[in-house]
Write a protein that binds this DNA or RNA. Structure first.
Lengths: 138, 138
DNA sequence: GTTAATGCAAAAACTTTGCAAACCT
DNA sequence: AGGTTTGCAAAGTTTTTGCATTAAC
């Protein structure tokens, strides 16, 4: 059922089902958070050869369809994650690089205030908070 | 006085005072938020020729010294801003690109909770919140 | 005079694009 | 069959690096 979902979403907009698209989506789901390059690597481990440009095009497509999202967790490449996982905020430690996923509820007081004061609707799924984790903070 | 500050900071760590470093720092202060490329452009307008690689090296140095900071406001290049301006959070509208600066107090409830729950110390100056501004939200 | 910093040019890393061949429907 | 998608290769961007020259101290 969930496995049909993405197929339906693709077809709904007239896009075709290809093994590459399935492989990329699966890789993103499996990896949790991954750069285009890491997605390519993961797909290759599946003993499948997909071109890097296809990975880029596919990630763009999947994001347009709302099946994946990206966030800027490192200073370099964007990292993609599946939207099948519930929305979450990323806490990224500047020292050790650890990434913690946090339920969006924790920032609800803030999003409420931003809406209230500025009429700003926070895109929770895209939020990355940098700082120092418990271990590195002291 | 403030104009001496950065000179002192540089010397304190044994770095040298160069016109390029002053030009880059001034450009960042003047521009508010700027990519390395925009900094280069601004410096050139000062009728001074500074190489792009010097801009990169200088921004890195200034950041190490705590004189500038960077945040990821767009999906592409990082934007640098002076730390002379008080810490602030960036609200970025995904539709129109508008960037609003917000006092850190507004997110204090969130940072408190993150500290409480995860021992996570939020780096407020680096925080960029994506979403939809008042005009674009509806 | 020493040593760090700059400019330049080349390389590296990352992403995009054009086009013919292959594949989905 | 017909139009979309892929692979490949080449080009575009952005950032980094090595090294000789220049400039700060």
């Amino acid at each position: 059922m969930a496995s049909q979902d993405w197929q339906t979403t693709l077809r709904a907009k007239g896009y075709r089902l290809t093994p590459q698209r399935e492989l990329v989506l699966r890789a993103v789901e499996r990896l949790g958070h991954a750069t285009p390059d890491e997605v390519l690597g993961a797909v290759h481990e599946e003993s499948a050869a997909v071109n890097i440009s296809t990975v880029y095009r596919t990630l763009e497509l999947l994001e347009e369809l709302g099946l994946v999202r990206h966030a800027h967790i490192t200073d370099r490449a964007p990292t993609y994650h599946s939207t099948a996982t519930p929305d979450h905020v990323h806490l990224v430690c500047r020292s050790c690089g650890e990434v913690t996923e946090v339920a969006p509820e924790i920032i609800e007081p803030m999003t409420a205030k931003l809406l209230d004061t500025y009429g700003f609707v926070t895109d929770v799924g895209h939020l990355t908070i940098f700082g120092a984790c418990q271990n590195c903070a002291r």
